[in-house]
Design a protein around this nucleic acid. Structure first.
Lengths: 111, 111
DNA sequence: CCTATACTAAACCTCGAAGTTAATTAACCG
DNA sequence: CGGTTAATTAACTTCGAGGTTTAGTATAGG
């Protein structure tokens, strides 16, 4: 709902490294070292990416000895889905702009 | 499919001005001047935002006298929807991480 | 032709994102 | 305690995003 939050989430998703990290986390928790392994990038760089994801609410972090396991927190993606959902009728269907406009005026949904 | 394209789209969406422009365009085509009106921002700034949206494939531009009407091109949002869709089961449902992992291994869906 | 209108291009500024290396904290382990 | 592993912090660099103002390009129209 807060627009700033959507900013953070979209910005976080705009980086392929971070999307790859999220994809990795669908397989379960992982430590920073594990997450960093696939990338040709230093550990602090990955640590920064994780901070971006955390600020966006897309991951949370636990504690296990010296390790800080990351877990996926997908809730903000529901907001993304909701936002994009409002545009669905603009990529589905084959009506032209005039039809779209009429549709909007009438609040109708041809699906 | 092309990861770079998703980068461009997410990055374009990470700015509230640009999302507002897209929202405006759901009401039909608009000129740059019309799009710029609601914002406390110079016209060149809006012009740059439009270029970002265009590069992401989210708008296209026509020509009408001196005006360059913009129209919404929502197709890239389908890619966004598809991407986010793969995470849906991670924000729906109330199972914990272990369950998620088992679910993934079994390819099951408890919904 | 001249001028106003609509927009883009150019030049510039500032700030933060993304990366580096080196230093620091924290926890385990022999 | 001393050393190793895991991760963050700090200091620094580079680059591009987002904004500005000023200048340039088209096109409409008196």
């Amino acid at each position: 709902m807060v627009d700033d939050q959507l900013d953070l989430v979209f910005a976080a998703l705009a980086d392929p490294t971070r999307r790859a990290i999220l994809a990795r986390l669908t397989g379960g928790e992982a430590t920073v070292t594990e997450l960093a392994a696939p990338f040709a990038m230093s550990m602090p760089a990955v640590s920064k990416h994780l901070k971006v994801l955390e600020r966006a609410g897309l991951i949370s972090r636990g504690r296990n000895a010296q390790q800080r396991p990351c877990r996926l927190e997908a809730a903000p993606l529901a907001d993304v889905a909701e936002w994009v959902q409002t545009y669905r009728r603009f990529w589905e269907g084959s009506f032209d702009r005039l039809d779209e406009h009429l549709q909007e005026l009438q609040g109708g949904d041809p699906a």
